[in-house]
């Protein structure tokens, strides 16, 4: 598959379709082709960490597997809080304010494992790994995507926040209480006054402190933002869609593909995961089943997957899909590293 000649692979797809497992198996494939490959995931479950034998806590790459060809598979579990702090440290011009910021309760809330921060730290971690250029190929397993535009825009939104020149309007002040008073006496009074009616003064004070700590982040964030766009739109960055064959998942998959097109990026491949059971491709070999109940179950299963096959054929015919379509059958018990490696046979 030519896809492994890219520098970045971004695996997209609805939730619960086996994206993480697929991403790791793709990385295996790349390693067997002699590539030095890094797979990154933000999967919150403990399972992948166990399978790859990687700590969830340190946000570092770890060598998982070395192939005879010289290829290597490295894994990394993105820890949003650490990734976020690293980002802020990188752009901070003053050590003290960084500490202030990390102590700020709202910052802690912001960086805890919420959806928005997962989106942001996923992309940010990709950029960090890309810039180090230690790897031939980086595979990013994205968090379940509700809206692709939100995902791809998450760095932009975050940079805007960090770049806000909120405080330059009034100059700086020492603590939140005097800041608050200053605000109440100045132009922003309307909005902050209203906000404090709804949330209470303490919340607004925390908020002001939060923005104040952000003030010392350098302007380089802007040029960094361009770098992100460049990586996401690079010719050597390929997007891969992983999905299951059910009505609702296919609709979601189609939406992701359309949103990608709107962005000017194109979909390289689609992987239909857990497509049909292994026995289904050997229907001709199955002898007549004598037991009535078992025959009944067999017929239900068979008809169900025949229908499923029709759905997928229609889907592929009616939509403009990329050249590469990969079908991975339903395989029970993909639990160990070896199991995941066995999936590479399908690519």
């Amino acid at each position: 598959m030519k896809i492994f000649n890219n520098k970045v692979l971004i695996c997209l797809g609805p939730g619960g379709v086996g994206k993480t497992t697929t991403s790791v198996s793709l990385a295996f494939k790349a390693a067997t082709l002699g590539k030095k490959c890094l797979v990154m995931t933000i999967d919150p479950s403990r399972r992948l960490a166990t399978v790859l034998n990687i700590s969830k806590k340190n946000n570092k790459e770890k060598l998982v597997f070395k192939d005879d060809s010289g290829g290597e598979l490295w894994g990394k579990i993105i820890e949003p809080q650490i990734a976020f702090q690293d980002f802020v440290k990188k752009f901070s011009t003053s050590g003290e304010t960084v500490e202030d910021l990390f102590e700020n309760v709202l910052f802690k809330q912001l960086t805890s494992t919420l959806k928005d921060s997962q989106d942001f730290t996923s992309i940010e971690s990709l950029v960090v790994a890309y810039e180090k250029s230690d790897f031939d190929l980086i595979i990013l397993d994205t968090p379940p995507i509700q809206n692709l535009t939100d995902f791809l825009d998450s760095p932009e939104n975050m940079y805007n926040l960090f770049n806000s020149k909120f405080f330059q309007m009034i100059g700086s002040s020492e603590n939140s209480k005097s800041l608050f008073k200053k605000f109440i006496g100045k132009g922003a009074q309307g909005v902050l006054g209203l906000l404090s009616k709804v949330t209470g003064q303490q919340f607004v004070e925390e908020l002001l402190l939060f923005f104040k700590s952000l003030e010392n982040l350098s302007l380089e964030i802007k040029s960094h933002s361009k770098k992100v766009d460049q990586i996401l739109g690079d010719k050597k960055t390929a997007y891969l869609l992983i999905t299951e064959v059910s009505q609702s998942k296919l609709i979601e998959a189609e939406e992701i593909s359309e949103q990608l097109k709107l962005r000017g990026y194109s979909l390289h491949s689609i992987i239909f995961n857990r497509f049909i059971p292994v026995w289904f491709s050997k229907l001709k070999d199955i002898k007549p089943i004598k037991n009535d109940k078992n025959l009944q179950i067999f017929n239900k299963e068979k008809d169900f997957y025949i229908e499923k096959k029709k759905i997928i054929d229609n889907f592929c015919q009616s939509k403009l899909l990329p050249g590469n379509i990969v079908e991975v059958p339903i395989l029970d018990g993909i639990n160990s590293l070896e199991d995941i490696k066995s999936l590479t046979a399908y690519y």
Partner: peptide, 26 residues
């Protein structure tokens, strides 16, 4: 939401109460 995000949902008022100790938000 699915489980991971659902926990974040459930934790949000707890986190906010820790952040803001008094007033309407709390």
């Amino acid at each position: 939401y699915s489980t991971g995000h659902f926990l974040a949902l459930m934790r949000s008022p707890v986190g906010m109460m820790k952040a803001v100790k008094k007033g309407p938000m709390n």
